[in-house]
Design a protein around this nucleic acid. Sequence first.
DNA 1: AACTCGGGGCA
DNA 2: TGCCCAGAGTT
Length: 214
Amino acid sequence: MDKRTTQILLALEECYRGATSALEYRNPFELLIATILSAQTTDKQVNNITRELFKKYSTPQKIVTLTEEQLAEKIKGCGLYRNKAKNILKTCQKLIEDYNGIVPREREKLMQLPGVGRKTANVVLANAFGIPALAVDTHVGRVANRLKLAQGKKPQDVEEQLMTLIPQNKWNELHHWLIWHGRKICKAQKPLCAECPLNKLCPSYEGGKFHETP
DNA sequence: AACTCGGGGCA
DNA sequence: TGCCCAGAGTT
């Protein structure tokens, strides 16, 4: 790891030590469902929905007793809820048929579940199973690019570059640090570079000015 | 690569 | 009011 990368990690840790997702869950299945729901939606909305949903429908076997319309009604309030209802129902059916109702621990199997892409799969691997994985969402991708820890728009490219650059035992922390930094400071629009604790290390903020580096 | 789904947050 | 998301699937 080069010196600049080390300095960036130290600065991130200093600011965001202990940062985690605000998503509430008690087991891998609940995290899987909560993460599917969280796309384009805030954690707060998701928590409100899952708290109510998991009271009566805490397993795939229970969720598949709902019709698509009934499930959609219960998760209304998060974005894209009709698609998610459809996907969650199919995912629960597949969990029951193929995996005896147990969430699998392999990325390939997770990604075959409807509604589960690479980001969601990695979140489940890292947070529910403690398996090293680096989930790249829009925040992580944007911040990593601005700091030039990675280059390129495709999340999987960013993921692979970060995995090469950063020691494995830091991947999950790095994910949360970059997300928090992306939300609070390194925002998509009008990033708060002047008050950014990393601005001296950031190639996108030179000469006291922010410039997106393509 | 571009488009769609969709309500909430925020200027 | 309008614009932007803690993405994934389809075209």
